[in-house]
Simulated scan of single mutants.
Amino acid sequence: MAFPEDVLADEEEIVLHLRPHWKAAVAPTVVLLLALTGLIMGWVMLPATEGGRIGLGLVAAIMLYYGGRYGAYPWLAWRCTEYVLTGERLLMQWGVVDRQRRDLPLNRVNDHSLTQSLLDRVLGSGTLTVDSIGDQRVVLAGVPAAQLVQTTLYELIELAPADEEEEAEEQPQRGSSSGRSSR
């Protein structure tokens, strides 16, 4: 799924476009497979009598409920969650039925930290917590290549203020040199 370009500013470019690590989709996929297996076993093993059909309906209802609630919905939530890092901001977008989007300008970021369990370290994922001005906190759970994302975030935060300071310093110098030549 491509990130909508109309969300970005005119000259804003995407640096990283991620979704949560694939490990978040493993459990829902296993639940879906188990629900499908239970449904097939009920269909094969229950007799073709009226009681068997009632039992199969009951098994089907249970498997559909658990497969939908603990399998399909979490898998769709994983699939519909996106983390986008641009040169100016961090965007998070999530939601299956209703979409939610949150923007965090990089110039408002105070601190960012990375938390990794042993499994996260093995898989290269982690939870990135970003704190910003005004006691706002954003938690990006299950970020793939978490150390690379944290390093990239740090570099973008450090580059953004330097660019603004250089532009502010260059403008008075240009004005003063043009003022001298007109005299």
Rank of each mutant, 00 (worst) to 15 (best):
S177V: 14
V15M: 02
L58N: 04
P28H: 02
P20K: 00
P144N: 01
L46M: 12
R99H: 13
R53T: 06
H112C: 05
L119C: 09
V122S: 06
V96G: 07
Q100W: 09
D6R: 09
V7N: 11
L85F: 03
V44Q: 09
Q171P: 14
T37K: 07
S132E: 08
L148V: 06
R19G: 02
E165Y: 13
R89A: 05
A25G: 07
G179L: 10
V138Q: 11
I133A: 15
N110C: 14
L56S: 04
V84S: 02
L18Q: 02
R108D: 15
D120M: 07
V26K: 06
T151P: 04
H17A: 07
T49D: 12
Q93C: 10
D103I: 04
M92W: 05
Y83L: 01
L118H: 09
L36C: 11
G52F: 00
P4M: 02
A160W: 08
L118G: 08
V138N: 07
Y73D: 03
A162Y: 11
T37A: 13
G55D: 03
A146Q: 02
D10H: 11
L123F: 08
E11Y: 05
G42T: 08
L159G: 13
M63W: 00
I62P: 01
Y66L: 13
S113Y: 06
Y70Q: 07
L104C: 12
R102D: 13
V30R: 07
D103F: 04
V149G: 00
G52I: 00
R79L: 09
L64G: 00
Q171K: 15
L91Q: 02
L46E: 04
P105D: 08
S177K: 11
G142S: 05
H17L: 06
E170P: 12
A77C: 12
S177T: 14
P4E: 03
